[in-house]
Amino acid sequence: MYLVVVTALAFALDAVFGDPRWLPHPVVAMGRAISWAEPRLRTAFPDSPAGRRRAGRVLAACLPATSFCLVWAALALLGAISPVARFAAEVYLCYQLLAACELRRQSLAVARALATGGVGAARRAVGMIVGRDASSLDAAGCIRASVETVAENASDGVIAPLLYMMIGGAPLAAAYKAVNTLDSMVGYKNPRYIDFGRASARLDDAANWIPARVTALCMVATAPLAGLSASGAARAWRRDHASHLSPNAGHPESAVAGALGVRLNGPGVYGGVLVQKPYVGDATRQIEPGDVARTCRLMYAASMLALAAAAVIRLAICLAAR
């Protein structure tokens, strides 16, 4: 029951409080560690494709392992002092590793910016949450980018951490977030990171393989609870999940596109380069600002289903082992 209660409380705290700016955040610490380690590893290995790949493999191995060990050691030390202190610390750490509330806040800020400040304000708001160049986006493009961000991060920002928490508590969830942070910082297919970030990108693909598919399945199952189409979500997921440059992101994004009845993805500008990405979903209607809130409702419904299912499975395994 311990990890079930820890994970459920962490999810509830994130839903209520989100990420207060004044609190230190473990993902920020991971990002700083990556920024510190990258130039040193690049210097330590030969400046060749093979050398950069070796340096990247060291980073991809060390940061998740260090994150796991540090969290495990801290919790073990607290547990030796007080089980209550360990429990509180693990709940807090798990809460900090979830991003549902922040996703909701920042995505809805795009819709509000569009309504109050026009396209220019929406571009600035969406530029805070996406990696693409937002300067050329029109109103529909800003909303589409927000919906896509919530859809993709429903998996790696919410449901994947929940699943890893349920398996190994805060230490395993911290290791997963380290993998995810590595991918977001160095896992790019550009001249700077094509070699150095390869190991991080592949590790992230492996870590998200099951969670991405679980997320899409939960979205299909809970679409009616969010007032959306389960049949549309299932159809688009089955047909379009492979129509994405990522082996995982296409699963939740295609499910969201089908549930909403809109078309997502398509060409985008990244680092000044136009990237031709296939569309997912069908344009049965034009995307609209209200779709951001609908996607957030679907994210929460799918997350709660994933949490409940994982809790039932964990408890069943524990009871069977007795």
Rank of each mutant, 00 (worst) to 15 (best):
L9C: 12
F17A: 00
G18P: 03
G18H: 02
L23K: 06
L23F: 13
H25M: 05
A29I: 06
A29T: 11
M30K: 06
R40C: 05
P46Y: 03
A50I: 00
R54I: 07
A55M: 04
A55H: 01
R57M: 14
A60R: 05
A60W: 09
L70C: 13
L75A: 12
G79I: 02
A80H: 12
I81E: 08
P83Q: 06
F87S: 10
Y95E: 01
L98F: 01
A100P: 01
A100H: 10
Q106K: 13
S107W: 02
A109K: 07
A109C: 02
A111Y: 02
A111L: 08
L114E: 11
G118K: 08
V119M: 04
G120E: 15
R124P: 02
V126Q: 08
M128Y: 06
M128E: 14
V130A: 05
G131A: 09
S135R: 15
S136V: 11
D138Y: 00
D138W: 01
A140F: 00
A140P: 02
R144I: 03
S146N: 06
T149V: 02
T149H: 11
A151N: 01
S155Q: 05
G157I: 00
L162I: 15
L162E: 07
M166W: 00
G168Q: 07
G168P: 06
G168Y: 06
A173M: 13
A175Q: 05
N180W: 01
L182S: 11
K189Q: 15
N190V: 00
N190T: 13
R192L: 07
G197T: 11
L203D: 06
A207M: 15
N208D: 14
I210T: 14
P211R: 07
P211T: 07
R213E: 09
C218A: 15
P224M: 09
P224L: 10
L225P: 07
L228W: 08
A234Q: 04
R235M: 12
A236D: 12
W237T: 12
W237G: 10
R239W: 05
H244S: 14
L245S: 14
S246D: 03
P247R: 04
P247Y: 04
N248A: 08
P252M: 08
A257W: 11
G258T: 12
L260A: 12
G261R: 05
V262W: 09
N265E: 15
P267V: 06
V269M: 14
Y270K: 11
G272M: 09
V275D: 11
Q276S: 10
Q276N: 10
K277A: 14
V280A: 10
G281Q: 08
A283G: 04
A283W: 01
A283Y: 00
R285I: 03
A293C: 02
R294C: 13
C296I: 15
L298C: 06
A301D: 11
A301T: 00
S303C: 10
M304V: 12
L305V: 11
A306E: 12
A311P: 04
A311W: 05
I313W: 12
L319S: 11
L319C: 13
A320H: 11
A320L: 15
